[in-house]
Design a protein around this nucleic acid. Structure first.
Length: 110
DNA sequence: GCCATGGCTAGTA
DNA sequence: GCCATGGCTAGTA
């Protein structure tokens, strides 16, 4: 977390990589877990800047109410990928959202 | 000054 | 539906 004064994109990506297939997290949950409880929107911007969608599963970051959230390649694609990973949708809402929500654990930094 | 958010009110039904 | 919040970028000077 370096200075701790500013949200570091790398920390966000590292934490997001711990969210397994079939589960999701939210912009706000990532922000809180990293110690920036107000930075949900900033997390969204960081997702948008994701340099490597293959390695960093930004499609697993959804809205706090179980809605889809955004996606650089379109929310349709995001929904398809999540469906492929085993999630179900009722319209644009994730079914059983609370049960699919990953518990975020911050790993020790080296 | 925008936005891949979210939480909290007002105000309707 | 409003607006605080954090980080970014375009575009002016």
């Amino acid at each position: 977390m370096k200075t701790g004064r500013r949200l570091d994109a790398k920390d966000v990506y590292d934490l997001l990589r711990t969210v397994p297939e079939g589960q999701v997290t939210t912009y706000g949950d990532l922000a809180k877990a990293l110690g920036f409880p107000r930075a949900a929107r900033a997390i969204g911007r960081i997702m948008n800047a994701n340099p490597d969608p293959i390695v960093v599963p930004c499609h697993r970051v959804v809205a706090s109410d179980g809605g889809i959230g955004g996606y650089g390649f379109g929310i349709k694609m995001k929904k398809e990928i999540l469906t492929k990973e085993g999630l179900l949708f009722d319209g644009d809402m994730i079914v059983d959202f609370e049960k699919k929500r990953a518990v975020l654990k911050l790993k020790r930094k080296k």
